[in-house]
């Protein structure tokens, strides 16, 4: 199998779906001729034609609104919001419309659609190109939220999202588009090539939504993570020597409660890691779920390692980013608890 980075894997997923289903079409800012600012749609317009992959006006509400109409007609649009930080003008269309059509019409109207958006920091993007927006959407009944952490999953999850009959927000951790960043920003960047999850089949396959992946089995404690933080958690486990079980959630809604419960009941300790700000972050939900399901198995308080409750500060990127040192420290505290 060819080694693919995450951009190539996502491109391959879109290519497969354009090939397979004439009702799939792609639009968004700069995604057409140019192929997207991160190159995820590179070559798709040339290969599949102008109406299958085209540029959209800079109007995120219009992009999502139009996609809802297309979905209601019977298409399966895949739209790109260029940076997750730009998604707010589309919030009403996502929350009040895309997420509610099926319910409010008693399934008379539905709008299957996938909203792809690069998210997260670690690229010196400052406050408007680094945000982690997932909690604003995991709170919304009717939406699914998916976040891959590697090329193989990225392709399989994106295809599963496009084929899903409900609207899916597909957040792409852009810091790991080109390599598995573990938070050691002082070290040279490693590419995906050679990583086991970069073996990506060229043909169609799916990774099911709602299923977590245990990346590292361990007996000391459970780390719940997704996106970039999966790699940071693995590095922290290695750096600290703690035998951590690292679970890549992959889908936040619906989250894989069985995998979480089984692991925490086994280890009795839990650290939750995400890059987004802490207050009302998805970690709060995870912490509550673990407490509800595993309280009598817990040996120590649950810890959250997250971005600080500040906007994403440009010059203080690595002070903000919850890197492996912070994660390892939390793991040690939880082991001592």
């Amino acid at each position: 199998m060819p080694a693919m980075n995450m951009i190539q894997a996502l491109n391959s997923a879109l290519d497969n779906m354009l090939e397979k289903d004439p009702n799939v079409l792609i639009f968004g800012e700069d995604v057409g001729f140019f192929g997207g600012v991160f190159r995820v749609t590179d070559g798709l317009q040339k290969k599949h034609g102008l109406t299958r992959c085209f540029d959209a006006p800079i109007a995120e509400g219009g992009i999502v609104g139009a996609a809802i109409g297309m979905g209601a007609y019977g298409l399966r649009p895949v739209v790109e919001i260029q940076f997750a930080d730009y998604i707010y003008p589309a919030y009403d269309q996502l929350v009040s419309e895309a997420a509610r059509l099926r319910y409010r019409s008693a399934a008379d109207f539905t709008a299957p659609m996938t909203i792809r958006s690069p998210y997260g920091g670690g690229i010196f993007g400052g406050n408007t190109h680094s945000q982690s927006v997932e909690a604003l959407f995991t709170h919304v009944a009717g939406l699914k939220t998916v976040i891959p952490s590697n090329p193989y999953d990225a392709k399989g999850l994106l295809i599963a999202s496009i084929e899903d009959d409900d609207p899916v927000l597909f957040l792409e951790p852009k810091r790991i588009y080109n390599g598995p960043f573990d938070g050691h920003h002082e070290k040279p960047v490693s590419p995906w090539a050679g990583h086991p999850m970069s073996d990506v089949p060229a043909e169609h396959y799916t990774v099911p939504l709602g299923k977590a992946h245990t990346l590292r089995e361990g007996k000391d404690l459970t780390v719940l993570a997704y996106g970039v933080m999966v790699h940071v958690a693995l590095a922290a486990a290695q750096d600290s020597g703690i035998d951590a079980e690292v679970i890549d959630l992959r889908t936040l809604v619906p989250v894989d409660i069985e995998a979480i419960e089984a692991s925490v009941k086994k280890t009795g300790r839990c650290v939750i890691v995400h890059e987004a700000t802490r207050t009302s972050g998805f970690g709060a939900e995870l912490s509550a779920l673990v407490q509800e399901a595993c309280f009598y198995h817990l040996e120590a308080p649950i810890e959250r390692v997250t971005g600080w409750d500040t906007p994403y500060p440009h010059a203080f990127e690595w002070d903000y980013f919850p890197g492996p040192e912070r994660v390892a420290k939390a793991m040690r505290r939880v082991m001592e608890g």
């Binding site: 509400g61 219009g62 999502v64 609104g65 139009a66 996609a67 809802i68 109409g69 297309m70 979905g71 209601a72 007609y73 649009p77 269309q93 419309e97």
Partner: peptide, 8 residues
């Protein structure tokens, strides 16, 4: 915009 998308 939904109507426009449907028409598209």
């Amino acid at each position: 915009p939904q109507a426009v998308g449907w028409a598209m």
